[in-house]
């Protein structure tokens, strides 16, 4: 139980996927102009991250490891995740149209995202069991949500700032993200892994 809590705090704040591991910067900069869209993206990432990590975990344990095909890990994960997200998208459109309206446009964006693949592979490297896998992917997704939501708040406010012409848009975004990452260094060592 304590280990689950430690995993959750660690992946949410201390090794935050965006601010500390620097993964998934592309949608982080791209979809963070408004807090509403940032929240949509955040929820989509949480959803896909849990699904993809779970599937790839099962695949690793029950298919790749017994067949000694570990070296195929990267390529298998990419294929499976891409296919999974497409299937989820189609199913969701049919079964839960409201959820599709909320997350729909973000799903294809995440298909080829490095955060999803990164978390799936990290999860295998850390030798987590099934419950730890779910907690790890869920809290990493929440960490992504926190980072992109706060960042979008700052960027909304920056719309009124008199930013010099060459730094407008993504440039000032990356600098702000850097400063946020600087601030999040304070959480270092909050829990010991």
């Amino acid at each position: 139980m304590l280990k689950l809590l430690i995993i959750a705090i660690d992946s949410m704040l201390i090794s935050n996927i965006v601010l500390m591991r620097f993964l998934g910067i592309c949608p982080y900069i791209g979809v963070s102009k408004k807090q509403e869209t940032a929240a949509g993206m955040g929820f989509a990432v949480i959803f896909v991250m849990v699904m993809a990590t779970l599937i790839s975990y099962l695949l690793q344990i029950y298919v790749l490891n017994p067949l000694k095909l570990e070296y195929l890990q990267t390529i298998v994960f990419i294929f499976v995740i891409a296919a999974l997200v497409q299937i989820v998208e189609i199913t969701m459109k049919k079964i839960a149209p409201t959820l599709f309206d909320a997350l729909g446009i973000y799903l294809p964006l995440i298909t080829t995202n490095c955060t999803i693949l990164g978390v799936a592979i990290l999860n295998i490297q850390k030798n987590y069991n099934l419950i730890e896998t779910i907690v790890f992917s869920l809290s990493t997704g929440i960490g992504y949500f926190i980072a992109i939501y706060l960042f979008a708040g700052i960027r909304e406010k920056l719309d009124w700032a008199d930013v010099p012409e060459p730094f407008k848009g993504p440039a000032i975004g990356i600098i702000t993200a850097g400063l946020m990452s600087l601030a999040f260094f304070g959480f270092t060592g909050l829990v010991k892994m």
Partner: peptide, 12 residues
């Protein structure tokens, strides 16, 4: 660190 983190939260 605490003040910087809360400043990041401030617009939200």
């Amino acid at each position: 660190f605490a003040i910087l983190i809360m400043e990041a939260l401030s617009p939200t």
